[in-house]
């Protein structure tokens, strides 16, 4: 690196767009098409984050995409992302091996409203890969279990072989800190668990709706119907929070790619209250 390059200080706006170099320090094949990468900074301080936030991950020469942080927020030395191979950049990320370099910007976006859950029941609803952005929340909830009345995790996915973080789910289910409900859309008869929608689990697991704070992440129709069911059961609309997804580019609220009505999902979201979202979820143009 030249002396001029070393002394160059980009303006603030430009600095926000510059990825920091990170290295892949561990790689876990979660599902056939899904990988978790643990990243550590090549130099400098680790990247702290709050559950619910995301980063922009840049694969050199391929492109940059937003990915939710899926690791334990108390372990800041390792930044964990869980990625499904659905395109050029995600495919390139999934193929990275230990030692590979990746660019990171962020963390960006709003967080799960953790304080609202203090002294109340926390009800977490995950659909498919939506469990990944919720995992930091569950870590936080278990670390702060004494401040919460109860913690429930309802997880729906396509089939038993698509269950994400299976070992961790088993460990959580074995602990006394969390009530776990799992359901799948389709199964063969050797599956001993539930087959049905996540909303089927609400009657048995939602104990005190008026004193419950719900946090949801998954396919948008699933969140819409689950939020409606939670509202019908008596969870206040202001206490239902959704993690939204739209096509992002800058991650900073500059470009407008991820606009949803009055919100820019990268800046105002991804976590937003259902009370402000529910009318937008059925607007075709959005």
């Amino acid at each position: 690196m030249t002396a001029i390059a070393r002394s160059y200080q980009p303006p603030a706006a430009e600095a926000d767009m510059l990825p920091r170099p990170f290295r892949v320090v561990a790689r876990q094949q979660e599902l056939a098409d899904c990988v978790s990468l643990e990243l550590a900074p090549v130099e400098g301080a680790p990247l702290g984050f709050v559950p619910g936030q995301f980063t922009m991950l840049y694969v050199h020469g391929v492109g940059e995409i937003p990915i939710s942080i899926s690791g334990d927020p108390s372990v800041s030395e390792r930044l964990v992302h869980t990625i499904r191979d659905v395109g050029a950049v995600t495919g390139a990320l999934c193929r990275l091996q230990e030692g590979a370099r990746v660019g990171v910007r962020g963390p960006y976006g709003s967080a799960w409203p953790l304080e609202r859950a203090f002294g109340r029941h926390l009800f977490v609803v995950a659909g498919g890969l939506g469990l990944a952005p919720l995992r930091p929340l569950v870590h936080w909830a278990l670390a702060n279990r004494h401040r919460l009345k109860s913690v429930a995790l309802v997880y729906g996915t396509r089939s038993p072989d698509n269950l994400l973080f299976l070992e961790q789910l088993r460990a959580w289910a074995a602990s006394e800190g969390l009530e776990l409900g799992i359901t799948v859309d389709r199964a063969t008869a050797d599956w001993q668990g539930r087959v049905g929608l996540v909303t089927d689990l609400l009657p048995g697991m939602l104990h005190d709706p008026a004193e419950t704070v719900a946090m949801l992440c998954g396919p948008e129709p699933m969140m819409r119907f689950a939020a409606q069911a939670l509202g019908s059961a008596g969870v206040p609309q202001a206490d239902i929070h959704l993690s939204m997804e739209r096509n992002m580019k800058c991650g900073l609220g500059w470009c407008g790619h991820c606009q949803l009505g009055p919100f820019l999902i990268c800046r105002d979201g991804p976590v937003l209250p259902y009370a402000e979202l529910h009318r937008l979820l059925t607007v075709w143009e959005l």
Binding site: G127, G156, D185, L197, T199, D200
Partner: peptide
């Protein structure tokens, strides 16, 4: 619920 499951919401894109 059958209609929703027909959508196969958790399928990879």
């Amino acid at each position: 619920t059958t209609r929703l499951r027909l959508l196969d919401l958790y399928a990879p894109p």
